Amino acid sequence: MTTIWGLPAHALLVHAIVVLAPLTAVLEILCGFWPAARRRLVWLVVALAGTTTILTPITTDAGEWLKDQRRVVSPILQEHAERGDWMIYFSAALLVVALALAALHWLESRSDTPRKAITVVVAIVALVVGVSSIVTVARIGHSGAESVWGGR
């Protein structure tokens, strides 16, 4: 996908990632540490993580196409593209955490007290993956903005 209604697809799709990835991360952290949130939001979190994982390679492919349209690729644009290529790993990690939260939810529905160690591990992994994903999205976005607007 290269354009949507005549606009570069990357410019439109990137906004979905910029919203969905941090939203998914925050909800995963919330669900990891608060069982009531997990009971209410776990399937939304799985859907958001799945959507983010699907949109990430589409967005990076559209970004590569857009970069290839440039005659000169600045170092900051190259850095943005390289950072963007890493987002798929963070999106996949968000999906794995969402599935772990769903499994934890399922275990909780089968018994009153799942093993405390499992709950703690899932919460900590959700925190680490969530924070690192938010930071990564911010770093990718910052380098992208710098490549477009930095010299102005």
Rank of each mutant, 00 (worst) to 15 (best):
P75D: 15
H105W: 15
R83F: 12
T119G: 15
A126N: 09
T136C: 04
I134Y: 08
F90H: 05
S74N: 07
E64Q: 07
S147K: 05
L7K: 11
L66M: 11
L13G: 03
A16R: 08
T136Q: 00
P75E: 15
R110H: 06
L104V: 02
K67I: 05
T56G: 02
I140W: 01
R110S: 06
P57Y: 05
I17M: 12
R70D: 10
S147L: 03
S132A: 10
I124Y: 01
Q78S: 10
Q78P: 11
V72W: 02
V42K: 12
V129T: 00
V125P: 08
A36C: 04
I118Q: 01
A93E: 04
A9E: 10
S91K: 12
T56K: 01
L127V: 09
E82D: 14
E64Y: 07
P75V: 08
G144L: 04
G141Y: 07
G32V: 05
I124L: 08
E108D: 07
A62I: 09
V73D: 00
G150C: 07
A138E: 05
F33T: 01
V73P: 00
V26R: 11
T60G: 03
G6I: 11
S132M: 13
S143V: 06
H15N: 11
G150E: 02
P8Y: 15
A100V: 04
H15G: 06
L99Q: 03
T2K: 13
L41Y: 13
L127D: 05
V148T: 02
A145R: 03
V135G: 03
Y89R: 06
A9T: 09
A47C: 08
R152A: 02
V129R: 00
R152W: 00
V137L: 13
P75W: 11
R83P: 00
S147N: 00
L30F: 14
T3D: 12
A62K: 05
L99D: 02
R70K: 14
L20N: 07
R38N: 08
G150H: 05
E82M: 10
A103P: 04
T53A: 15
T51W: 12
V42N: 13
D68S: 15
T60E: 05
A16F: 14
V42F: 14
L7F: 14
Y89T: 03
V129N: 04
E146S: 10
D112T: 13
K67V: 11
W43M: 12
C31S: 14
I140F: 04
W106A: 13
R139C: 08
I118P: 06
L127E: 07
L94P: 02
W34N: 12
D85H: 15
I118E: 03
I140P: 00
S147E: 08
A36V: 11
V131H: 07
W43D: 09
L94K: 05
T3M: 12
W149Y: 02
R71D: 15
W65I: 07
I88Y: 09
T60S: 09
E146R: 11
V26H: 06
A25F: 06
A103V: 10
M87W: 00
